[in-house]
């Protein structure tokens, strides 16, 4: 009975919403025009990066804060180690991981650099870095994390702290995260570099902290 009701409700929702979207009036505000008009003063050439780190930098600042918060909560929950025995990684996977990891780091740096004028940026680069760490962990070349030490903690929080420091420094000149146009370029690159390292570590930590097991406790 409940199943039927839910399925019927979902189907009605789909039909109504698609029907509404089909005769939706065109948007009254053209944001893409505003973005391309202000692009020269943003310090970067790609509109998505300009929106993420300049026009709506506030969102990105809070986003990295949310990620950090999620990691802290996971640490606070205190994960009990599991006793599952995982099959040993095959030598083929290990050799492939050894080959791929340096390439992935190069790709991450490229994505970070290219974000200023093409699709790319700190988040994509951080995701690639995290994927490299997870790959190495699955190939048993990198142990799971027990509890982060001081250096790791600094790396995890560094991106957020750099971002916050730049935002607070700019507060003296007027508004939060309102870069002066001539210095916006290197400020965004500084923030993005910090974000890349921290995001890579945080995303990897979300996996590596959850997957520690008794074998890692030595």
């Amino acid at each position: 009975m409940k199943r039927l009701l839910v399925v019927l409700g979902a189907a009605c929702f789909v039909v109504l919403l698609i029907g509404a979207m089909l005769d939706l009036a065109p948007a009254s505000i053209a944001l893409h025009a505003a973005v391309s008009a202000n692009l020269p003063s943003s310090g970067v050439e790609h509109p998505v990066t300009a929106v993420l780190l300049n026009f709506r930098g506030y969102d990105t600042l809070l986003e990295i804060a949310v990620l950090l918060l999620a990691l802290i909560v996971i640490l606070a929950i205190g994960i009990d180690s599991t006793t599952d025995v995982r099959p040993a990684a095959s030598p083929v996977l290990q050799a492939l991981a050894r080959l791929a990891a340096p390439l992935m780091i190069v790709v991450a740096v490229y994505l970070l650099w290219v974000g200023a004028f093409r699709p790319g940026g700190a988040f994509q680069a951080g995701a690639v870095l995290a994927a490299a760490a997870v790959l190495l962990h699955l190939a048993e070349l990198l142990p799971g994390w027990q509890s982060p030490g001081l250096r790791l903690r600094l790396g995890l929080a560094g991106g957020f702290l750099i971002f916050l420091a730049v935002a607070a420094g700019l507060l003296f000149q007027g508004a939060l995260l309102e870069y002066p146009p001539e210095q916006a370029g290197w400020m965004i690159l500084l923030i993005e570099s910090g974000l890349t390292v921290s995001l890579g570590l945080i995303l990897a930590g979300l996996f590596l902290l959850l997957s520690r097991d008794d074998g890692d406790r030595s």
Binding site: V35, V48, L52, R56, A70, F123
Partner: peptide
């Protein structure tokens, strides 16, 4: 293509990953 919603969605994806891990 409007870059503002694209940037918002990029932010949303990262937050969704964090929420899933939690």
């Amino acid at each position: 293509a409007d870059p503002v919603p694209q940037a918002m969605v990029l932010t949303g994806i990262v937050v969704a990953v964090a929420a899933t891990a939690l």
